[in-house]
Design a protein around this nucleic acid. Structure first.
Lengths: 213, 213
DNA sequence: GTGCTAATCTGCACTTAGTCTACTTTTGCA
DNA sequence: TGCAAAAGTAGACTAAGTGCAGATTAGCAC
């Protein structure tokens, strides 16, 4: 990689790191773009060349994971169902304490999560990420499993929402002080339940005599 | 209702109507708050007394439906499962061409939907509505069906996402010119499939020999 | 090294969303 | 009619984000 490219990456990291540090310490709304630019030793204008909005200074760190579910579905063995592939992968990442699952002990990541949850503007941006992820997952299901389009969209929506719920739930436990290894068994159980609900449906939760309309 | 209250409501409506009219004609980003205030014949500052953000000028029209799923679950007969209640209700609203379902012929509503879909900032705001709706549904499930908290959250997430997907799918059909009565059968079939997936799970979609991990 | 080109960085002015404060108008009611 | 409270207004202010014109700097040819 050329010097120019490397320098750009370093600058980008420097800006984002400075931003998150300031945001974590003083709060997202209490720190201005100008202050971030000063801390990172670049001009305000340059900062906007790297990050289109203030929110992106924080959430770009999750951009890598945006297409993870779709990739997992596309990369699965031919004889494996998408749901099993996603389940297996999630449990695997959980055991690896991948921040992607919400289960982590890294103080920096926990701070980052706390910042996200406490800032509506950032949560809104994360939901958009989630929607992109969902759309890509729908495409992957449609293209690799032959699922009809609407069906794929419905399934992807369910899967993405369960995924998000599990990650938030895991994070909440870690943020409130439980260590990752200690939270792992609960997290695995939760993940198993989430994927079981996806796989077998919600009907067994509320058994009644009445049928559907 | 007192004169003061009535006048406030009228002002609120006038502002929102003027705003939507302008936004639909020229685009959300091409119209400034100042222009909206002028069109509604109030001061900029007064406008902000009624609507906290520019986005709210548009999306407040959906605020009524925010807690609809939770209400349906709470109001269901004692012997009915939450899922059946929600399914029945959705089909009912579909037949009534309730804009809440995305199925409508009212040109104003269609314009409004088109505006939403074409404006990322507005979609982001709608996703937040959806999340609130999901949280309230989770509470309703937890409190009225005795579902454990995490289970309720997972179920609510799935239900809310299917709901949203169905509404968007119906809207897309209507926005592309299909009349509501003509789109109804397809919409009912889609709803039945969505709720069937929720009820019985995704496993049957992708039958394989391999089990879960 | 020298110089050229193109990418990058910067300063500055500008627009717009949203807030704050102090002041005026209107409404409900005695 | 008069008064207290609610609602509306004017105008200055902060901060995000954009456009532009000029200064720097990397990459490369010689």
């Amino acid at each position: 990689m050329a010097l120019r490219e490397r320098k750009k990456l370093r600058t980008r990291e420097a800006i984002s790191t400075a931003a998150i540090e300031l945001f974590v310490e003083h709060g997202f709304d209490q720190v201005s773009i100008t202050q971030v630019a000063e801390a990172a030793d670049v001009s305000r204008r340059t900062l906007f060349a790297y990050f289109p909005t203030k929110e992106d200074l924080v959430v770009h760190r999750f951009a890598d994971h945006e297409d993870e579910p779709a990739r997992v579905v596309r990369a699965r063995p031919a004889d494996q169902s998408p749901l099993v592939a996603l389940h297996t992968h999630f449990i695997e990442r959980l055991r690896a304490h991948d921040p992607f699952t919400g289960l982590t002990d890294l103080p920096q990541v926990l701070d980052l999560y706390r910042l996200l949850r406490g800032t509506p503007a950032l949560m809104a941006r994360m939901l958009q990420f989630n929607e992109t992820s969902e759309r890509e997952l729908a495409s992957a299901l449609h293209e690799t499993a032959g699922t009809p389009e609407l069906t794929a969209r419905l399934a992807a929506a369910q899967i993405a929402s369960v995924h998000w719920t599990l990650a938030m739930s895991n994070f909440d436990r870690c943020a409130s002080g439980t260590s990752a290894p200690k939270a792992l068994p609960t997290a695995v159980k939760a993940a198993n339940q989430g994927f079981a609900l996806l796989s077998s449906g919600l009907a067994p939760l509320w058994p009644t005599t009445e049928g559907s309309p």
